[in-house]
């Protein structure tokens, strides 16, 4: 146990997991149960342990779904702008380029990171984490755990562009002068973010440590 202020950080203390101790722990509230464990946690009522294989299948299924809908999100227009009878469409990437041409480098960077960098890194990171559960990994568990935390934290922020489109479409409805409407990519992008969030949530971080735990016991 470590109390903040890091006084005794790094002191090697033997760590025993609930599983190694023959107990079943609730991943939601931390309550431990003796074998045979009830179907639902005695404290918070969460259904206990769908089994590591099932959770891994779920991770991969959501991940693949997220990657598939990410393709149309980049090909089709995100925004359809009409100004004085002249219509123009822009994809996510074109939106970023437009911002650059306006000289809004900071905002261009935010949109680029949220809509392109974060999703791509997320796909790679979740895929890597899910696959490294089964085999010897180049990254040690603490590093992989950090990666998992980052992916969980950062994933929601990809939604920025969807909100921008929604706000612009609501705001810019000035009849002939200017109207902005969402394109089909807004839907597929929102789905892609939701699917990858579900994928990350299905991942059981215990699996990162399981291999080390198995070696220790």
């Amino acid at each position: 146990m470590q109390i903040d202020d890091m006084e005794n950080a790094g002191t090697p203390q033997p760590i025993i997991t609930a599983r190694a101790a023959g107990l079943v722990a609730c991943p939601n509230c931390g309550r431990v149960h003796r074998h045979p464990a009830p179907a639902r946690c005695a404290r918070c009522g969460l259904a206990l342990d769908p089994g590591p294989d099932k959770s891994l299948q779920r991770v991969l299924a959501w991940l693949v779904a997220g990657m598939i809908v990410y393709v149309p999100a980049n090909i089709y227009p995100m925004l359809i702008t009409n100004t004085f009878g002249h219509s123009s469409e822009s994809t996510i990437l074109e939106g970023v380029v437009e911002l650059l041409q306006h000289g809004s480098y900071g905002v261009a960077l935010i949109v680029f990171v949220a809509s392109i960098i974060i999703p791509v890194i997320k796909f790679a990171a979740i895929g890597f984490l899910a696959l490294s559960v089964r085999r010897q990994s180049i990254l040690p568990p603490p590093a992989r755990h950090k990666l998992y935390e980052i992916v969980e934290f950062i994933g929601r922020w990809s939604m920025i562009d969807v909100f921008v489109v929604a706000i612009l479409a609501a705001l810019v409805q000035l009849d002939f002068a200017a109207t902005i409407n969402p394109g089909i990519a807004a839907i597929s992008f929102a789905l892609s973010v939701a699917f990858t969030m579900l994928s990350a949530q299905s991942f059981d971080p215990k699996a990162i440590w399981a291999e080390r735990d198995a070696a220790a016991s």
Binding site: M1, Q2, I16, T17, A18, A21, A25, V32, H145, W209
Partner: peptide, 27 residues
């Protein structure tokens, strides 16, 4: 007993004094 919800490490946490904070040692 409390199992770390993230990594399953087991700890004995009887009464943590108010105002302090306990973290899992490894994750």
């Amino acid at each position: 007993l409390v199992a770390c919800p993230t990594c399953d490490a087991l700890y004995r946490l009887p009464n943590i004094p108010i105002g302090s904070r306990a973290r899992c040692l490894r994750c």
